[in-house]
């Protein structure tokens, strides 16, 4: 379980948000939504301490991660898989080596075992036979899927998706959403999805965190969101040109 307690973050004089508190239960899929620039990506980077807050805590299984020594923090980070907004594949490595990268450094698997695991991961994201391609040769959707395969190769407990469908066509977005659902179901992963795509939220999420006005504006289940009369949340959903089906 991840507990976020009274987080506050600012960059210089610019306050991003403050007093952000919510919980993420094991195995659930939580969507973090909000308009561009409201600090969604900044918030998820606090979950594995890639960014430190001005104040507040992120407690994972009883431990405040901001108090961990660097070695312990790195151990904790290995419990996370992260799908970055721009995929963050290593340019110098091909698809196969990108996915194999964490296995080579954090396991003592033989080359045969690594090949087997990578091929398995590639088939899970429907990219069989693309191992030799470099990231530059892949389309945006394919890069996301390779990054997803890499993020899940060490079988993490938590998976963070930062804008997994942004910039993709509706069909590819839907494929990525299906992958997110199947990852959560098959690997029993706790998923945290940053998005401003309300269609994705309804498709994949169980709970929703809505950031607005430099803080946590609304937090609840998807069903509660459908019935909510929170004005800012409704404005956001309406602006997303979505008509909630009753």
């Amino acid at each position: 379980m991840i507990e976020i307690r009274n987080l506050k973050k600012s960059f210089g004089d610019l306050l991003v948000w403050e007093d952000v508190s919510f919980n993420i239960e094991d195995g659930e899929t939580v969507a973090i939504i909000g308009r561009s620039g409201c600090g969604k990506s900044v918030l998820v980077k606090h979950l594995n301490a890639l960014i430190y807050p001005d104040s507040g805590e992120v407690i994972i299984d009883g431990e405040n991660i901001f108090e961990l020594e660097y070695v312990a923090l790195r151990k904790m980070r290995q419990r996370f898989g992260v799908l970055f907004q721009g995929s963050a594949l290593f340019d110098s490595l091909n698809t196969f080596e990108n996915i194999a990268f964490p296995l080579r450094y954090f396991t003592d698997f033989s080359d045969e075992r690594i090949t087997e695991k990578v091929e398995e991961a590639l088939s899970l994201v429907n990219l069989e036979g693309t191992g030799e391609k470099s990231p530059a040769e892949l389309s945006g959707g394919m890069r996301r899927r390779v990054a997803l395969a890499r993020a899940t190769i060490l079988e993490p407990d938590f998976l963070i998706y930062d804008e997994p469908t942004s910039g993709l066509d509706p069909q590819t977005s839907s494929e990525i959403n299906k992958l997110i659902i199947s990852m959560a179901e098959n690997l029993n992963i706790t998923s945290i999805v940053v998005t401003h795509d309300i269609h994705s939220v309804l498709e994949i999420a169980e709970k929703v965190v809505f950031l607005e006005n430099k803080g946590l504006c609304w937090y609840g289940t998807v069903d509660e969101m459908r019935r909510s009369d929170n004005e800012e949340l409704m404005d956001f959903i309406t602006a997303s040109e979505y008509q909630i089906r009753n």
Binding site: K45, N48, L50, Y70, R74, K75, R77, Q78, F80, V82, F84, Q85, G86, A88, L89, F90, D91, F101, P102, Y105, F106, L154
Partner: peptide, 14 residues
């Protein structure tokens, strides 16, 4: 800037 360093850190690399 392409978040590859963040990716390394998030995997538990130094």
């Amino acid at each position: 800037v392409s978040e590859q360093i963040d990716a390394l850190e998030s995997m538990g690399f130094n």
